[in-house]
Design a protein around this nucleic acid. Structure first.
Length: 417
RNA sequence: CGGGGUGUGGCGCAGUUGGCUAGCGCGCCGCGUUUGGGACGCGGAGGUCGGAGGUUCGAGUCCUCUCACCCCGACCA
């Protein structure tokens, strides 16, 4: 995209109504727009990051046979009443509204009951199992207090997946597959500092698993065992859990972290309440084992922004960056313009995504914007580079730039002939 | 929800004990000079001070109510 045409602008000022670093930077750089407390719009740049994160998650969920769908935000009350979760006293984060005829509706904060209600229509035999479905959805939660920018809002994008299994073994097999898939996701996102964490499990099981990324701005406190690559949420840190996991308290390191994923085993608890059953080989009625697997897309974006940013601005890992290259054209002599246009067209044709800074502004401003936006590579074309018959390349985190030939430039940017 | 704080051009801020046409920086528009780390000069546009009510000769400054935002806590499948 040509920067001269992008409607968003960067700002030199830090927004006064945000203290969370992720929100400050994302707003300053023009990735998000604050609508109200805990509610943000995603601008073209921000949307690209969201979509990149989603695509990585999508690929890994598809790889374990997840079937993508999309549920509705408007929720009828009945399915939620069967599990006792319609009552505001039980679930205090409901947003509710009404139809013109006064029928009460909920705005989805989760889709567990909704998915079960839908799947009841399709699943009736052991031959239909196991099956796994997922979606990317905007969840609405009436949090008492929004905070931490996009890391905890009232409206946020989440990937939620649900597995349906015929028995505990089938469920466990899939559950473990998901753990591995999640590890791949965080690895690809650059969040290598993420730990499978034992946390409180709810009704059916002793523990659930959280995926916690070490992050100062996070809301959780975990105790991690770097050697074994596991962690324990402080809420379940006790002798019992320690012995079960085979670790000693003094081996654990206490860190702040952000919960970027949480997976649950519901067993047959919910399917019993909602009468969700199938017929097995012997013709007997059995309840379905359910698993729920959440992954906060926009929270991940916030954590990445927060973790990698430096004093100059954002630093996106290549896998999620809105574009790979920031092409800065310095000056407007005909040869510079020609070369810059050509490179822009060439890279675009090669499917390398580029922000082409074709604005009539000074070098310092372009460099500052390239840094603030956090684009992985900066390429400069100027009278100097034209005279040298070279291109200037600098990685976002590199100290200095280097002059490279067109071949080396394309190679570094992943263009192969 | 308890406690604390803040609302003044698009953004960031200043506005003495109430007192003259409400200022500054950034940004924006025009002209010129500049042109490798957020340039400079000159000339402009833009606010009725979150909202409502009140006190007063007079309110951005005081009072009441209200809305919004931020922080701490509580909460957090």
């Amino acid at each position: 995209m040509r920067l001269s045409q992008l409607f968003t602008k960067t700002s030199k000022m830090i927004p006064a109504d945000e203290t969370a670093r992720n929100a400050q930077l994302l707003i300053q750089a023009g990735y998000i727009y604050k609508v109200m407390a805990g509610v943000y719009a995603y601008t073209p740049l921000g949307l690209r990051v969201v979509e990149n994160i989603k695509q990585i998650v999508r690929e890994e969920m598809n790889a374990i046979n997840g079937q993508e769908l999309i549920m509705s935000n408007l929720q009828p009350r009945e399915p939620w009443e069967t599990t006792g979760r319609w009552d505001d006293k039980v679930v205090d984060i409901w947003f509710k509204t009404k139809l013109k005829d006064e029928t009460e509706l909920g705005l989805a904060w989760s889709h567990e009951e909704a998915i079960v209600e839908m799947m009841k229509q399709y699943i009736s035999s052991y031959k239909d199992l196991p099956v796994s479905v997922y979606q990317f959805q905007t969840k609405l939660r009436n949090e008492l207090r929004a905070k931490s920018g996009i890391m905890r809002g009232r409206e946020f994008i989440m990937k939620d997946m649900y597995s349906l299994s015929a028995n505990a073994t089938q469920h466990d097999d899939y559950y473990n597959l998901v753990i591995e898939a999640y590890k791949k996701v965080y690895g690809r996102l650059g969040l290598t500092d993420t730990y499978v964490t034992f946390a409180s499990g709810g009704a059916f099981t002793k523990f659930s698993h959280e995926f916690q990324t070490v992050c100062e701005a996070g809301e959780d406190a975990i105790y991690l065992h770097r050697g074994k690559n596991i962690a324990i949420n402080e809420e379940v840190l006790n002798e019992e859990s320690l012995s079960q996991l085979g670790v000693k308290r003094e081996e654990l390191e206490s860190v702040k972290s952000s919960e970027v994923g949480n997976i649950f085993n519901f067993g047959t608890d919910k399917s019993k309440k909602m009468n969700f059953s199938f017929t097995n080989e012997a013709g007997e009625k059995q309840f379905i084992h359910l698993g729920s697997y959440g992954l906060g897309i926009t929270r991940v974006m916030g954590v990445i922004a927060e973790k990698f940013a430096d004093e100059k601005g954002l630093v996106w890992p290549e896998a999620v960056a809105p574009v790979k290259v920031y092409l800065a054209r310095l000056g407007d002599t005909s040869e510079v313009v020609k070369q810059a246009d050509e490179l822009y067209n060439r890279l675009t044709a090669e499917r390398v995504e580029v922000i082409y800074d074709d604005r009539d502004t000074r070098a310092g401003e372009k460099f500052a914007d390239a840094d603030l936006l956090g684009i992985p590579y900066r390429v400069v074309i100027s009278d100097k580079t034209v005279a040298n018959n070279s291109y200037e390349l600098k990685a976002r985190q590199a100290e200095t730039s280097q002059q490279v030939s067109i071949d080396n430039l394309l190679k570094t940017l992943g263009v192969t002939d």
